[in-house]
């Protein structure tokens, strides 16, 4: 029977959300193609995870080895290549996460399996696999088809699929596979996790956030938006480029590689709305975005949009808020 593989992602004793997102989408594909849904789980002492995964998958292939205690793409590649040669899955789904990005491209090339990365949707059309992905920071969607092959590999974007439990638990079986790793991996070794430096400001606790992006243009413009944040009783947050440039500390960063926030009000200034940022703020109660580009993706996640230069909007807005406060006192 044909198989669709989902590589379970876990870290520090936790199965990560992406695992269940992938299982949800892969189940739909497995039903359509009449294939078995198989979760592949590699690690040390991860049997508990396997018990969790059998609710979603027909079977769990479990490889336990002390050498798999921490994610290591070289170790994973050896183990997965071994399993692939035996079972030849028609599709393998891996997360487009830090781990998936480290693993999938080299694995696919080594196995000579075509790969599409960072997919937001996928479908079989006959024996061809078509995928939807994005280009130019989410401003354009692309429909692409993978080169015809007997097996395909994809990495999928985080939060692209909403987790749905199967109507009835799959009650899958756990199939243990002896680890093919005979010696320590010496090319690349995990040393330790490095936690983010303790921050001075907790943006996740703020009720009002003023988020800034590339549109701020220059570090010297930050006081302008900081004043707005102050008058409205909010805190300054930002998208990745602002932290990369060193204009704000990393504890202000909203998005996949920063914080996830859910304030009562999020004002996005000069933020185009790449998914890496949007994932961190799209559940805010009220989102108001200012951007010069009318097609900026941020507008499809906002309640109110203003197509204008942020420097034309911020000063009158700040003045009016200050006037209002002056009237009240």
């Amino acid at each position: 029977m044909a198989e669709i593989f989902v590589l379970a992602e876990h870290r520090q004793g936790q199965l990560r959300d992406i695992t269940f997102e992938m299982l949800t989408k892969a189940r739909e594909l497995a039903e359509k193609t009449n294939a078995d849904l198989t979760a592949v789980l590699l690690g040390k002492n991860v049997r508990e995870h396997a018990k969790n995964l059998v609710e979603y998958a027909k079977r769990v292939l479990l490889v336990e080895d002390d050498k798999l205690e921490h994610f290591n793409s070289d170790a994973y590649q050896k183990v997965l290549s071994h399993i692939f040669k035996e079972r030849k899955p028609i599709l393998t789904v891996i997360g487009h996460t830090s781990y998936g990005v480290e693993l999938a491209p080299r694995l696919a090339a080594a196995l000579n399996v075509p790969l599409a990365t960072d997919c937001i949707d996928l479908a079989f059309e006959g024996d061809a696999l078509t995928v939807t992905r994005q280009m130019y920071g989410g401003k354009v969607n692309v429909k692409a088809v993978l080169r015809k092959a007997e097996g395909y590999m994809v990495t999928v974007r985080q939060a692209a699929f909403q987790v749905q439990k199967p109507p009835t638990p799959s009650n899958g079986e756990i199939e243990e596979i002896p680890s093919p790793l005979t010696e320590e991996i010496t090319t690349k070794r995990f040393l330790q996790y490095v936690l983010p430096p303790p921050g001075g400001v907790d943006i996740t606790a703020a009720e009002v956030l003023v988020g800034i992006g590339r549109g701020i243009k220059d570090q010297s413009n930050i006081p302008i938006v900081e004043e707005l944040a102050k008058s409205i009783g909010g805190v300054l947050a930002c998208s990745r480029p602002i932290v990369d440039k060193g204009w704000l500390p990393s504890d202000r960063q909203v998005g996949i590689s920063g914080k996830t926030v859910k304030p009562k009000l999020y004002i996005a200034l000069g933020i185009s709305g790449a998914f890496q940022h949007v994932l961190g703020m799209k559940n805010s109660d009220l989102i108001i975005a200012v951007n010069k580009d009318p097609k900026a993706p941020i507008f499809s996640f906002s309640d109110y949009g203003i197509v204008e230069d942020l420097f034309k909007i911020v000063p009158p807005l700040r003045n009016k808020i200050n006037e209002l406060k002056a009237q009240k006192t």
């Binding site: 075509p114 790969l115 080169r147 906002s302 949009g305 203003i306």
Partner: peptide
């Protein structure tokens, strides 16, 4: 020699359209 062939580009569908002021 590629894995991927682009079929078409299109503007992403809108999840929630902002009301423009």
């Amino acid at each position: 020699g590629s894995w991927l062939k682009i079929e078409k580009l299109y503007v992403p569908p809108v999840e929630k359209q902002a009301e423009f002021l």
